[in-house]
Design a protein around this nucleic acid. Structure first.
Length: 451
RNA sequence: GGCUAAGUGGCAGAGUGGUAAUGCAGCGGCCUGCAAAGCCGUCAACGCCGGUUCGAUUCCGACCUUAGCCUCCA
């Protein structure tokens, strides 16, 4: 089977063609660890997660690299603001990022390099670019010479001179040309820095990714797939391509994919609007399955508009899927069950279409074992585990006792036909945020998601 | 201003050159002591204006609107 994925370079869906038959390589820009991950970070992680899961079903080896940026001006600011050290900030937020992502069921990448651990490689990469005549040293900075690279602008389809004309920012004195970007910059005072041929300093933003790709795969290799949020197309990925192609004779990367932005009520999230939605908070009031459904029910290239109804829509969808196989025991699943969902995903990761397929299966899953298997296994490919939707909620023993007492009380009242009194008890439970269901002689309860 | 995308029912969101999936919500029914859940049924949409075509929501062009990038934002 072939997998088609939209390639930002050509603006077309293209068949993924790895250079080796059984091995495929992918790199995705990871987080800068200075604050809590928000829903946009989650989307940028879950889209490659789906691709990663899918590729693993098709190739015997998938190398997936996602970096952690732990040197950055914003980190330095955050450390000052929280009155602590840079290490503490980056360790804290790296931990939170990892917890949040695993809370969303996002698989760990094969490699997860940190910038601070790769400084020697980065310096080495910069030296190569200088040596090849594509970068220059100026006032303790190293700058990439964009004029020396003819194809600059190929990804974002921008013309360098036009960009410069429209720019609103003053040109730094150390730049030969306004479009040049920083590979290495000096660290002044006690800001973090490393010894280098150009003095104490730290890497520019773009070089870390290029350097890590080359570090893991080797200089003379071409990356198969590179992804990230579409706000990274320019300048970040454009610059990566320039650097990568000037470091080695091999093409930097063949296939670029970009996920759309997350909007909140059709507006971009920003601290000033106070509409930033954090993964932490979502995980508290919802669960992995629902959040994944919410993030994946929009095609990855489209903007995802997050509204008040997003979670309840997704919750209904998951409810619909899981109700058909609730209480199902884990059974060995048939490998051909994945054929149809693979077909759907192989057309540019069409996850909304995948959900349509899943709901179709759910219709017959109660009676048809094959459909039930296909539903469970196909959902798993999206990282949705329908077998674990009835997990015990995390509540205090005290509350649990109280709920049990009320349930017993109501049950007795119902058995003796005192329905008005039983309904009063149900209301008491509802006030505690507990909703109940009587089905086939048993009463089950759950904590309401929004309480 | 330049570049890049997008506008589908109440909400969300696929898809297609021949009259448009799916989920949520709504409505009706079955079930239930009543609810809930489930099941069955049902209402309802292709921004605007031209062009190409036997036929356009789909292709082309203009316009309007929205969003992103051009500022080390995923």
């Amino acid at each position: 089977m072939t997998i088609k994925l939209y390639n930002t370079l050509s603006r077309k869906k293209e068949i993924i063609r790895p250079q080796k038959e059984d091995l495929i390589t992918m790199y995705v820009c990871g987080p800068t660890v200075y604050s809590h991950p928000h829903i946009g970070n989650a989307r940028a992680a879950i889209v490659p997660d789906i691709l990663f899961r899918f590729l693993q079903t098709k190739y015997s080896q998938v190398i997936y690299i996602r970096n952690i940026t732990d040197v950055d001006d914003k980190i330095i600011e955050a450390a000052e603001k929280e009155n602590t050290s840079i290490d503490k900030i980056t360790n804290k937020y790296t931990e939170i990022y990892k917890n949040n992502m695993s809370g969303l069921g996002i698989l760990d990448p094969t490699y997860e390099p940190k910038v601070t651990e790769k400084i020697p490689n980065i310096i080495n990469s910069i030296e190569k670019i200088i040596k090849n005549g594509n970068a220059y040293v100026s006032e303790s900075h190293v700058l990439f010479n964009t004029k020396s690279y003819d194809s600059y602008g190929q990804l974002s389809r921008k013309k360098l001179d036009e960009m410069i004309d429209g720019a609103r920012v003053d040109v730094a004195s150390y730049k030969k040309y306004p479009g040049d970007f920083i590979l290495w910059k000096p660290s002044i005072g006690d800001s973090p820095g490393w010894k280098s041929p150009w003095g104490k300093g730290r890497p520019g933003w773009h070089i870390e990714c290029t350097s890590m790709v080359k570090d893991v795969l080797g200089d003379d290799t071409t990356l198969d797939i590179h992804g990230g949020g579409n706000d990274l197309i320019f300048p970040h990925h454009e610059n990566e391509i320039a650097q990568g192609n000037c470091m080695s004779k091999k093409n930097y990367c063949n296939h670029w994919f970009h996920n759309g932005i997350v909007l909140v009520d059709k507006k971009k999230m920003s601290k000033s609007l106070g509409n930033v939605i954090l993964v932490n908070n979502l995980l508290k009031k919802s669960n992995k399955n629902i959040l994944r459904a919410a993030l994946l029910s929009t095609h990855y290239r489209q903007p995802l508009n997050w509204t008040k109804k997003t979670l309840s829509n997704a919750s209904g969808l998951i409810q619909r899927l899981s109700s058909s196989i609730e209480h199902e025991k884990q059974e060995t699943l048939d490998s051909t069950a994945l054929d149809e969902i693979s077909d759907i995903l192989s057309d540019d990761l069409n996850t909304p279409e995948a959900f349509r397929y899943l709901t179709g299966l759910a219709k017959h899953a109660k009676r048809n074992k094959n459909d039930r298997y296909a539903l469970m296994q196909s959902s798993m490919l999206l990282g949705i585990d329908l077998n674990h939707t009835t997990e015990e909620p995390d509540i205090t023993d005290e509350l649990r006792d109280k709920i049990e007492t009320l349930l017993t009380k109501r049950s007795k009242l119902r058995n003796s036909g005192q329905y008005d009194e039983a309904d009063t008890v149900r209301q008491e439970l509802s006030d505690l945020g507990v909703s109940i269901e009587d089905s086939s002689g048993k009463t089950t309860w759950k904590i309401d998601a929004d309480k």
